[in-house]
Design a protein around this nucleic acid. Structure first.
Lengths: 106, 106
DNA sequence: GAAGGGCATCGAAAATTGTCAATGGCAACA
DNA sequence: TGTTGCCATTGACAATTTTCGATGCCCTTC
């Protein structure tokens, strides 16, 4: 729900609120567990994993996995699709492009 | 001193240690104050600011500014050059390219 | 409808982090 | 050498974040 687009950092000086918003997006990935989740989902066959698979692959407790997945989804980095009893997570197609755009030059 | 190069997230699955290292790099920018510092330095005339200027521009206490600047320098995102009594900070030339590389596709 | 698995949410504890006042070192200059 | 300004570091406190067990809901299957 929070799929913001951030302009290039190099384009114009950021005001306080813009800096905070950008920091929140980056903060969503700036965690070893969430980086590991992102990598696992990215390289999973089919590009998706369900919650249980993520827990098992990374050795996480269920509430811990749920907590991190929630953050990634809210930041617009992961997509969540409920299929039957499973919640499948995949990388939001535009996520990396949005992140690259932030660090694009000129 | 810590100018690591991280491979593309999409290239290969990350082990635990690689995920932690990448998270540390991203964590260095994932803070509203440090994003604001980065933006200010980036758009400063000459591409550099000294500590005092950063404090004044952002309204930070001196130890707080020093704390954040230290983190950015250690992460290899800012360069620090002491000139007389002033410490001038500028964006490490390769910093944005390294960050873009992390989020490059395929 | 009863049972089992997957998942979210709710507190609470533990760890990490941001902020600050105080202190001291270093450079420049009188 | 005394003074002034810039900056780093220390130690302490407040706020945020991570992690966890416990609980309950939803879906599937029997």
């Amino acid at each position: 729900m929070t799929g913001f687009d951030h302009g290039p950092l190099a384009a114009a000086p950021l005001d306080d609120e813009e800096a905070a918003a950008l920091a929140r997006l980056l903060h969503a990935i700036a965690d070893r567990t969430r980086v590991a989740i992102l990598s696992a989902v990215l390289h999973a066959p089919g590009g998706e994993l369900n919650g249980r698979q993520i827990q098992d692959l990374l050795g996480l407790r269920q509430p811990t996995a749920s907590h991190h997945l929630r953050k990634l989804v809210r930041a617009g980095i992961l997509d969540r699709e409920q299929r039957g009893p499973y919640a499948y997570y995949s990388v939001e197609p535009d996520a990396f492009a949005r992140l690259r755009a932030i660090f694009s030059e000129g």
